[in-house]
């Protein structure tokens, strides 16, 4: 059984469908990347899966259970975490408080989970009392991912995790994503740095005008000349 299977999704914002028949499937522990031009509906697809948008038609299964109309809170409870692209930390809360919020739904001692996140992002341990709003873009992205990992999810959804980062930090972020995947967590991400993202991905989807255009393994998509010309900038 697939970890996640979305079939023929239609929906979007009030009045206008952005998604027009998008589908997606991923197995546990995979890295899956969604690429495509601006306005293709990549972020919309992710938001729709997480229950942030109204889905008019289609079905989403998570571990075989229907979650088409599940709310974000229920998604978090089921083990799905989502990191928005922008405004993805609580700026006036300290780093540690941000992480604690990630596990708000749990009524237990959070120290082992904090240790897990600090092991992955040692820098956050040094800065754990600093307000997240005072950190750099790269550090904030770490806080955001750390927050999402606090529930020990089985599926982590990242919306453009490298947007606005320097090349060195982009490399660093992709390294971390591979480390997260090595923990057995499935990672679904939308990325503008399509080539680099596909190079670490097990599989990828190319979305255009709200529907699937191509789907294949990461290396195959990278090797596909049509995809390269049309969507990966040559």
């Amino acid at each position: 059984m697939s970890l996640l299977a979305a079939t023929d999704l239609h929906g979007g914002y009030e009045g206008a469908d952005i998604l027009k028949g998008a589908s997606l499937r991923m197995e546990g522990g995979e890295i899956v990347v969604i690429v495509g031009p601006n306005g293709a509906g990549k972020s919309t697809l992710m938001k729709a899966i997480f229950g942030l948008l109204r889905i008019r038609q289609g079905q989403i299964l998570y571990k075989g259970e229907d979650i088409t109309h599940a709310k974000p809170e229920q998604m978090v409870r089921r083990g799905v975490a989502y990191v928005p692209q922008e405004r993805n930390v609580f700026p006036s809360l300290t780093v540690q408080e941000n992480l604690e919020m990630g596990a708000f739904l749990l009524d237990e001692d959070l120290r082992p989970r904090l240790e897990m996140v600090y092991a992955l992002f040692p820098k956050l341990r040094d800065r754990h009392r600093q307000p997240a709003g005072l950190m750099s873009g790269g550090e904030r992205q770490m806080v955001a991912m750390g927050r999402a990992l606090m529930m020990e999810p089985q599926l982590l959804m990242l919306d453009e995790p490298t947007a606005g980062l320097s090349p060195r930090l982009i490399d660093d972020t992709f390294d971390r994503i591979q480390e997260i995947q090595a923990l057995g967590i499935g990672v679904l991400m939308v990325e503008q740095n399509a080539k680099q993202a596909l190079s670490i991905a097990h599989r990828g989807y190319v979305l255009a005008t709200g529907a699937n255009r191509y789907e294949d393994t990461g290396p195959n998509l990278l090797a596909n000349r049509e995809v390269a010309e049309l969507f990966l900038g040559g």
Binding site: R87, F90, P91, L93, F104
Partner: peptide, 14 residues
Amino acid sequence: RAMSDNMDLALVTG
């Protein structure tokens, strides 16, 4: 405080 900071993020955080 988190909700006052960022309502949308509070929602996706659960």
